[in-house]
């Protein structure tokens, strides 16, 4: 059974008024338990709307979201539980920090879930560990942390809810390369350890190529592609048409092929490209 299933998802803002705007139309897909899904699309393609529908922050005008096989809006009063199960990290999540200490801030979600002190404490500590926040930082004010630490503290606040599905909306935006690399590997590590499902929204094709199993491509509120990372990036022309790129390294291999060098173009990382070229030279 798929962990998330979207069926005919449609969202229309201001229906029936002169401001009517279709943000999402008839989107269908299924995500399997344990998958790492990259979500791409240019600004305004419906990515943000889609992820907010998946955890019940928005209600679809038509269609259904199934989480673990259950319609999330079946009991509207229990929508909060859906949000705990499908944890959402927004863009620039550090702007949501508010507590006196980092510890309390991370504990906000677990407390809202009604967990016991002990369980909350366990969750806070393990979440902080996943994002690499040192223990002494837990008792500092979140406003005294550095930019990168704030970001990680905010992400820990969602991880602490131990969601089955973790949705990250451009978690690396605005970070420097160091902060970005550290955060990406922490997310990968978390995914490996917890074996849960991750939906990762990003504008960086290089990052998406590095970590996703499958990629969902959105365009003008519709699903354009949903396929394995290799298959998606094999469709360079299609992606370019909707204002997206392929990773530079993939592009280089494709350009080589065009110039008559018979290399494999299903290349997503520098390492793969390096091996492919060494192989080619060897034969």
């Amino acid at each position: 059974m798929s962990v998330i299933k979207a069926q005919n998802l449609t969202l229309v803002y201001g229906k029936g008024t002169s401001f009517q705007k279709t943000a999402l139309s008839n989107v269908n897909f299924e995500i399997e338990q344990g998958e790492f899904v990259g979500l791409i699309g240019h600004t305004g393609s419906g990515k943000s709307t889609l992820v907010q529908l998946l955890n019940g922050l928005l209600k679809p005008t038509e269609g259904t979201v199934y989480l673990n096989g259950k319609n999330i809006w079946e009991e509207p009063k229990k929508i909060r539980e859906v949000r705990f199960k499908a944890g959402m990290v927004f863009q620039y999540p550090e702007y949501q920090l508010f507590e006196e200490t980092v510890y309390k801030d991370i504990a906000y979600g677990p407390k809202n879930m009604g967990l016991s002190e002990d369980e909350t404490d366990k969750r806070v500590r393990s979440a902080a560990e996943f994002v690499g926040l040192k223990r002494e930082l837990l008792y500092k004010s979140p406003f005294d942390l550095s930019g990168g630490e704030k970001r990680r503290a905010a992400i820990a606040g969602v991880i602490a809810m131990d969601p089955d599905v973790l949705i990250l909306d451009e978690p690396t935006a605005g970070l420097d390369p160091l902060g970005r690399d550290v955060l990406l590997s922490q997310i990968q590590n978390y995914h490996k350890t917890r074996k849960n499902t991750i939906i990762f929204v990003s504008h960086s094709m290089e990052d998406i190529a590095r970590i996703s199993d499958r990629i969902l491509v959105m365009n003008h509120g519709e699903k354009l592609l949903f396929d394995t990372t290799q298959n998606v990036f094999a469709k360079a022309e299609e992606l370019e048409k909707v204002g997206l790129r392929i990773p530079q390294i993939t592009k280089i291999m494709r350009m080589l092929k065009k110039r008559g060098i018979n290399v494999n173009t299903n290349i997503l990382t520098i390492e793969q490209a390096f091996n492919e070229i060494i192989n080619y030279l060897g034969t």
Binding site: P177, P247, I252, I270, I278
Partner: peptide, 20 residues
């Protein structure tokens, strides 16, 4: 210093390291 290197630059750098 953990700065980004374009993928193109890095690939050539690695191949140079192998003596190409």
């Amino acid at each position: 210093h953990r700065l980004d290197v374009p993928q193109a630059t890095e690939l050539i750098y690695q191949l140079r390291g192998c003596g190409y």
